[in-house]
Simulated scan of single mutants.
Amino acid sequence: MDIKSVTKKNSYTFNQWWRLFATAFGFVLFGIYGLVILSILWFSLLRLLIWNKNQRSIIAQKSISLSFKLFLWIIKFLGVIDYQFNGLEKLKQDKSCLIVANHPSLLDVVLLASIMPRCDCLVKGALLKNIFVSRIIKTAGYILNGESSQILPQCQQILDNQGKILIFPEGTRSVPNQPMILQRGAANIALRCHANIRIVHIECKPTWLIKEQKWYDIPVKKAFFNITIGEKITISDFSDQNTTIAARRLTKYLTSVLEKTNENK
């Protein structure tokens, strides 16, 4: 912990100190729960009792969703954050599509997965080295971000079974006041799997748990997350030309749509 952080914490208000304690408590509790109860006990039991991989993944995803919902309820009850969802009925109707969102905070995946009992996520392969999440990723059947020859068949199978795939096309958390740069992965999956895209806007005021920010850097006011389920992009509007060109055009359009979130902050 550097001197700047120490000086900052010395000027914390009582409410900030409380949120610091509550944040630490919430993360420790969730870490223990995720590793021991969810990963080691419940998911091990699932592997023994449910031999069908697809059925096991669906149950695991529902378990993760409920766990995230409980975690969010706890930290909201403790006064760490507040949040609201707008347009949830759209997500309930969506099937066989990509859910594409901007990525301002570490809690983005927790917030979105909590409202989608069945949700496949595109995750970094490096997370398999993390003891807290590796078994969760495997049991839930999440898609590892690797070779397109491996990703596309898995995505196609999920979409064919009316599933939804959550993707943050920035690839990492965004940096405030910096241009948004999207990777073409989401566009390529949508085009090659002929899947529509549902846009989700995530706004966090004040910013918290952004890229390279320490968890103990507590803002003066508690963070408020405003999650809005936005427009649905029909993939046929972009698939009338060469796939490479179409992916560039779609990525450019996704960038313009998602940047509106940053402009409104």
Results as ranks from 00 to 15, higher is better:
residue 137 I to P: 05
residue 137 I to Q: 08
residue 103 H to F: 00
residue 129 K to D: 14
residue 95 K to Y: 09
residue 125 G to H: 12
residue 123 V to Y: 10
residue 158 I to H: 09
residue 186 A to G: 10
residue 81 I to D: 06
residue 130 N to C: 03
residue 131 I to L: 09
residue 181 I to H: 08
residue 186 A to E: 05
residue 102 N to A: 00
residue 162 Q to D: 15
residue 178 Q to T: 13
residue 122 L to A: 03
residue 184 R to K: 07
residue 85 F to A: 03
residue 154 Q to G: 02
residue 106 L to G: 00
residue 87 G to P: 01
residue 160 D to G: 08
residue 101 A to R: 11
residue 178 Q to I: 06
residue 82 D to R: 12
residue 96 S to I: 14
residue 173 R to C: 03
residue 161 N to Q: 10
residue 152 L to Q: 12
residue 133 V to K: 08
residue 175 V to D: 04
residue 159 L to R: 04
residue 174 S to V: 05
residue 96 S to E: 05
residue 102 N to D: 04
residue 146 G to H: 01
residue 123 V to I: 08
residue 143 I to N: 05
residue 146 G to P: 15
residue 138 K to D: 15
residue 87 G to V: 01
residue 135 R to H: 11
residue 147 E to M: 11
residue 129 K to W: 12
residue 105 S to F: 02
residue 114 S to R: 01
residue 81 I to Q: 06
residue 101 A to Q: 13
residue 84 Q to T: 09
residue 111 L to P: 00
residue 121 C to N: 05
residue 181 I to R: 07
residue 137 I to L: 14
residue 97 C to N: 05
residue 171 G to S: 04
residue 83 Y to I: 14
residue 93 Q to H: 15
residue 132 F to H: 02
residue 105 S to R: 06
residue 140 A to V: 07
residue 82 D to V: 04
residue 112 L to E: 09
residue 139 T to E: 09
residue 149 S to I: 15
residue 165 I to R: 10
residue 89 E to P: 00
residue 179 P to D: 03
residue 119 C to Y: 01
residue 152 L to F: 08
residue 102 N to Q: 08
residue 137 I to C: 04
residue 173 R to T: 00
residue 118 R to P: 02
residue 173 R to D: 06
residue 115 I to P: 11
residue 146 G to R: 01
residue 129 K to V: 00
residue 92 K to F: 10
residue 155 C to P: 07
residue 122 L to D: 02
residue 103 H to A: 04
residue 168 F to N: 12
residue 166 L to T: 12
residue 158 I to F: 12
residue 164 K to Q: 13
residue 141 G to N: 05
residue 139 T to Q: 15
residue 145 N to A: 05
residue 107 L to H: 05
residue 94 D to R: 14
residue 177 N to P: 00
residue 132 F to N: 00
residue 93 Q to S: 15
residue 117 P to A: 11
residue 135 R to I: 14
residue 106 L to H: 04
residue 113 A to C: 13
residue 121 C to R: 15
residue 181 I to T: 12
residue 121 C to A: 10
residue 128 L to G: 01
residue 140 A to R: 06
residue 127 L to Y: 02
residue 184 R to Q: 15
residue 109 V to Y: 03
residue 159 L to A: 07
residue 92 K to T: 14
residue 92 K to D: 03
residue 106 L to R: 03
residue 110 V to Y: 02
residue 145 N to T: 06
residue 121 C to M: 14
residue 147 E to K: 08
residue 102 N to E: 02
residue 91 L to A: 02
residue 88 L to P: 03
residue 137 I to G: 01
residue 131 I to G: 01
residue 90 K to I: 14
residue 161 N to M: 11
residue 96 S to K: 05
residue 127 L to G: 01
residue 171 G to Y: 08
residue 166 L to A: 03
residue 177 N to K: 14
residue 120 D to A: 12
residue 171 G to A: 03
residue 106 L to K: 05
residue 110 V to K: 13
residue 124 K to Y: 10
residue 87 G to R: 03
residue 168 F to L: 04
residue 106 L to A: 09
residue 158 I to V: 14
residue 146 G to M: 01
residue 131 I to R: 10
residue 150 Q to V: 02
residue 133 V to C: 01
residue 131 I to A: 15
residue 178 Q to S: 10
residue 100 V to M: 06
residue 152 L to A: 13
residue 151 I to V: 14
residue 99 I to W: 13
residue 113 A to S: 09
residue 165 I to P: 15
residue 104 P to S: 01
residue 115 I to H: 04
residue 82 D to Q: 08
residue 182 L to V: 09
residue 120 D to V: 07
residue 149 S to R: 11
residue 126 A to P: 10
residue 123 V to Q: 02
residue 164 K to E: 07
